[in-house]
Amino acid sequence: MSGISKTFRVVQRGQGLRGAAGALFHREYREIRALRNVSFDVPDGALVGMIGPNGAGKSTCVKVMAGILVPSSGTCEIMGYVPWRDRARYVGHLGVVFGQRTQLWWDVPVRDSFELLRDIYRVPEDRHRRKRERYTDLLDLGDLLDRPLRQLSLGQRMRCELAASLLHEPKILFLDEPTIGLDAVSKQAVRTFIREINRDDGVTVILTTHDTADLEALADRILLLGHGQLLYDGTLEGLRARYDTDRTLTVRFTGNAGDVTPPGCTLISSGEGMLVYRIASDTVPLAIAQLAGALSLTDVRVEEKPVDEVIATLYRDLRIQ
């Protein structure tokens, strides 16, 4: 995927009745640049997470890759297909889950929805059965299959949804916020499953999420989008190394403290037998060595900021919020 841009034209409307009436005769268009020159390359079997604030262009990006949106400029090639041009032949290799919609039928047992998908994708019955049994196992769908979707909880529904999107053995799986609104246990199940099908079945997974725990648990690689631009492409560790170098160092000790502040440290609080410093990550070993020399330490704790906070700071610093 290289140099993808997408510009939408949106009708700009004046306010109130007057604006609405005006729009009938004269339309002004405002251009929204949803993607600006985004380029990246995803190898087979990768697990990539896309993050970015709302409106950053994640969904647009996924739609372009899925072939249901034609970009204004740029090229994209996936498995030898140009998604939007070869859509008919290409989409059979895709599985897609949109966290907020469903492709299952509301009023019929999940099993029947699965069978319909089998027929839509022309999967032979024995292969379908094998796949269904495997996912039933992995996702613990057992008795869910015979109940209509409307009777399932959100978490159960998402598990069925994931199985449904994989029944035709796609090579690529797009997940748009797969854990949105799920409870802790369901999230865990979904994450474990995504890991497994990526590792064992070699399915390339591209997921968008707002839940940074998803990224920690899943993504080998992160794409950060903001204002339609690709701002970061690399590992979560790399992101942290670049944007979050502060650590919190807490030491506990016995005896008297005196005034020990190793170079590069800022004392942020102190208490009975305890000192807390803010410190740059690369000076941590040196500081601990010095403190160990000056005090009789009983406990040392080095903390990094929660990923959520790192991302929030990042959005602020990059002014993409």
Binding site: K63, G67, I68, R87, V91, G92, V96, Q103, I120, Y121
Partner: peptide, 9 residues
């Protein structure tokens, strides 16, 4: 929902 339909061969 149309997106979902377009994603099927």
């Amino acid at each position: 929902g149309l997106d979902t339909l377009l994603l099927r061969p």
